[in-house]
Amino acid sequence: MTKTKVLTGITTTGIPHLGNYVGAIKPAIEESWRDDIQSYYFMADYHAMVKGRDPKRIHESGMHNAATWLALGLDTDRATFYRQSDIPEIMELNWILSCMTAKGLMNRAHAYKAAVQQNVADEQNDPDFGITMGLFSYPVLMAADILIFNAHKVPVGQDQVQHLEMARDIAKRMNHNYKTRFVLPEAVVGEETAILNGLDGRKMSKSYDNTIPLFVPEKKLLKLIRKIKTNSLEPGEPKDPSTCTLLQIFSAFANEEEVLAKKAQYEAGAGWGDLKNELFEYVNDKLKGPRERYNELLQDPAFIEAELRKGAEKARAEAAPFLQQVRQAVGIKGFV
C-alpha cells in the first residue's frame, strides 16, 4: 500500500491549550492511526526563533509540547516524531532552496508585507526596520521542512496556505532546473476543524490572553472555566446553546448523544453556575489520565529526549539519502 505522507509542524513558543488540542493535536493523533497515512510531527524550534528571543522559553516550550503529544497517546513507533534542530539535512536543504528562490516571491509573503506596512504606518525611515532575515526567509525553511520528506499533505491554517503555495513554486523551480523529483505538497485546510472560543468569547489564542492551558491543575481549571463569559440570563430561562462557549468546549470532548442531552439542559433553563461546574467535571475527567502522564513525563525529560532522538534517527534515515540525491543534482559531489 502506498501511504500518503502527512507532515505537521508543532510551534514551540508557548504551552498547549484546549484550542490547540481540539483544533490540531487530537485530529492529528487520530489520523496517525490510519494505515494509509505516514505521519511526521516535529518540534519547530528553529521556526520559534523568528518570534521568540527567550532561549529558556523556547527550550521549555519544546519540552512541554513534546510531553503533551506523548501524554495524549501519540505512538512514536507508527509516527515519526522529531525535533527540527536534530535534522541537519533540513538546514542544508534550506540553503539549497534559498539559492533557487526568487526574492520577489519572498517580498510577497504576508508576514513580511505586514511588518513593512507596520513600519510605514509608524513612519519609520527604513521600511525594513527591525525585520530579520529569519522572518523574511521563513517560507523557505518551511519549504525545506516539507520537501526533505516529500510530504504529500500539510495541515495548515488559512494564514499558512500561501507558504504551501510558495513551497510548491520552489519545488517546481528545482525540478525544472535540476531535474530533481520533489513532490508538490498540498495544503490541507480543515473546513470542519473545531475552533474553540476562549474566556472572553473570542477565538482561544495566546495573543488574546484568553486561553485555558490543556493540563492546568484541577483547581486552576475550575477557576478558569468559571471565568468563561456568559450572558445575564437567569436560571429557569431558556438559553441558546449555539452561541455558548461552554457548550462549544463540551462538544469538543463529548459524543453526539451527550451533546444532545446537554442542549436539552440549555433549553430547559439550566443555570450558568451549574453548567460551568458540570463542564469542569466532564472535561477534568477526560483530561485526568493524560494530565497525570504529562506531569510524569515532565519529571522524566530523559524519556522525552529518547523519544525525540528515536524519531530523529528514523527521520534522518530517510532525509540523508534524499539530500544526497539533491546534492548530486545541483553539482555538490566528489571528483572521483
Rank of each mutant, 00 (worst) to 15 (best):
E60C: 10
I332T: 06
M63I: 15
P185V: 12
E292D: 15
P235W: 13
V156F: 14
K5C: 14
I58D: 01
G236P: 03
N295S: 08
F42R: 01
A111Q: 07
H163V: 02
T245Y: 06
V183G: 04
Q124D: 05
R309W: 14
A254F: 01
L70G: 03
V22R: 02
P213C: 10
D169S: 11
I170L: 10
K223M: 04
F81I: 13
G104V: 02
G157D: 03
L74K: 03
Y41T: 14
E191Y: 07
K229I: 15
F182V: 01
A306V: 00
E30H: 07
A102F: 07
R327C: 12
W95E: 08
T11S: 15
F250Q: 06
A44R: 13
G19H: 01
Y21W: 04
Q324P: 06
F149K: 04
A28H: 03
V330K: 00
P290V: 05
I131G: 02
P217N: 11
V120T: 12
V120K: 08
V216P: 12
E278M: 04
P55D: 05
M100P: 00
K288D: 10
Y21A: 01
A320H: 03
A268K: 13
L7E: 02
R291S: 03
S32N: 10
D169V: 05
H17T: 07
K206N: 01
E31T: 05
G52Q: 13
T243G: 02
P139A: 02
E165F: 04
T230Y: 06
L221P: 10
T132R: 01
V259A: 07
T8P: 12
Y21Q: 01
A28V: 15
F250V: 05
F322C: 14
T132Q: 00
L224H: 08
T2H: 14
E191V: 13
N119T: 02
L287W: 06
D128V: 03
L164P: 05
N197F: 11
I249C: 08
F303T: 11
T76E: 00
I90E: 03
K103H: 07
R83F: 14
F335C: 13
K26D: 09
E218Y: 09
D240C: 12
Y46H: 08
R78L: 14
A115C: 05
V161S: 08
A67C: 12
Y82F: 15
K288V: 09
E30K: 03
L308R: 02
Q158G: 01
E307W: 13
F253G: 05
V188G: 06
A67E: 01
A167W: 08
E192G: 11
H176T: 04
I131Y: 07
G269F: 11
T68W: 04
A114H: 02
A187P: 14
A102S: 08
R173K: 07
A264S: 12
A261M: 10
E258V: 13
F253S: 11
S205T: 06
L70Y: 04
E165P: 02
P213L: 09
K288E: 11
Q158V: 11
R53G: 10
A143M: 10
E278I: 02
I58H: 08
P55H: 10
G190M: 00
S85D: 10
H176S: 04
K113V: 00
Y21N: 00
E313I: 14
G331W: 05
M1V: 07
D77R: 09
P217E: 14
T101L: 01
E281H: 12
E305T: 09
V189K: 06
D200G: 08
F322L: 14
K262A: 07
G134A: 09
L72I: 06
P301D: 07
Y21P: 06
F303N: 05
